[in-house]
């Protein structure tokens, strides 16, 4: 266990280092932030003052090592645009994104798993086929377009839901949350649905595939022959066995939604991390972009680790040391 954790830690550090080099070079190649930050009427002298204040007159490798040595001490740089520590800026937007993604994944699992079980167990049924066809659409319709259609439908035509923004929030331990107010829930509804739809489709398909395979297995047949009730077979023998791939996908999807729910956040003007990333890229706010990518890499590494641990909990055959080898 200890060895496993240690080894994973070392791997993670290597990944973070590699990513830091890649993202730093990429961001460096994109363009000159000074041209976007400075007032267009500024004189050449003002521009030069700004370049040296931001440390952009140093060679790339020098800038990278300054960044690295600061990063090791937990300082991911200061936003050019906001004059705030980049990490703090990103973290201040995190609760909004977290709330959105958590609810979306919850909705996706609550709807997707039962649908998938239904399809997997009654494959030849017409409804089952309709669900499978629908899931293809659910997965392949672009997020941006879907969001605009939702807005058009529920906000513009029916006027049931607000088109964008976060609504009223309530502070819990100083962190604002929307899901505790009615107005907040109304604002959450559409972005959550928008994020949930492809995941409902994904989970439905995964569960269906797993269930249809599992119901043919000997242990299910044996249970049925033994006279176990159908409900118990589904819950105990089928669902339990097919949960591993679902949990894996849920974990990865959770991570990637936290990192890249950019489109949904942009369409619904949801003040989360994704919107911050997009604005920062447009403004060439290098420290924020770099810190963002580093944070996302970090989250992925952690999520993957957690998924590995969850395997062990769900499947007693998997021991951590075994997975390591």
């Amino acid at each position: 266990m200890l060895l496993f954790t240690l080894q994973r830690m070392l791997q993670s550090i290597a990944v973070l280092l590699a990513v830091s080099v890649a993202v730093f070079l990429a961001v460096y190649a994109v363009g000159d932030p000074v041209e976007l930050l400075v007032n267009p009427e500024a004189t050449q002298l003002e521009r030069e003052a700004m370049v040296s204040r931001l440390g952009l007159d140093q060679p790339v490798w020098m800038q990278y090592f300054t960044f690295l040595s600061n990063a090791v001490q937990g300082d991911m740089g200061t936003s050019f645009v906001h004059a705030e520590p980049a990490l703090q800026l990103i973290l201040s937007r995190m609760p909004a994104t977290f709330e959105l993604v958590f609810l979306a994944m919850l909705v996706a699992s609550i709807i997707g798993i039962p649908l998938g079980l239904y399809v997997g167990l009654k494959e030849e049924n017409r409804i089952a086929r309709a669900i499978m066809t629908g899931s293809i659409f659910g997965y392949s319709i672009p997020s941006f377009w879907k969001g605009m259609v939702l807005i058009l439908f529920f906000a513009v035509w029916l006027q049931w839901l607000p088109a964008s923004g976060r609504g009223e929030t309530v502070s819990v331990f100083g962190i604002p949350f929307s899901f505790l107010t009615v107005d907040g829930l109304r604002h959450l509804a559409m972005p959550v649905i928008n994020l949930a739809i492809p995941n409902i489709a994904l989970i439905t398909r995964l569960t269906a595939a797993g269930a249809s395979e599992a119901r043919m297995q000997d242990y299910v047949k044996f249970a049925r022959a033994k006279g176990v009730r159908e409900k118990r077979i589904v819950r105990r023998h089928i669902l339990r066995n097919i949960l591993i791939p679902i949990i894996t996908v849920l974990g990865v999807e959770f991570g990637s939604l936290i990192a890249f729910s950019t489109i949904t956040e942009t369409v619904f003007a949801w003040p989360g991390m994704g919107k911050l990333l997009i604005t920062s890229i447009y403004q060439l706010d290098r420290p924020v972009v770099v810190a963002y990518v580093m944070l996302v890499t970090f989250i992925f590494v952690v999520v993957n680790l957690l998924v590995d641990f969850t395997y062990a909990l769900l499947d007693p055959r998997v021991s951590l040391s075994e997975r390591m080898s």
Partner: peptide
Amino acid sequence: PRLAGLLA
């Protein structure tokens, strides 16, 4: 989305 917000 800005226009949609006005319409809504």
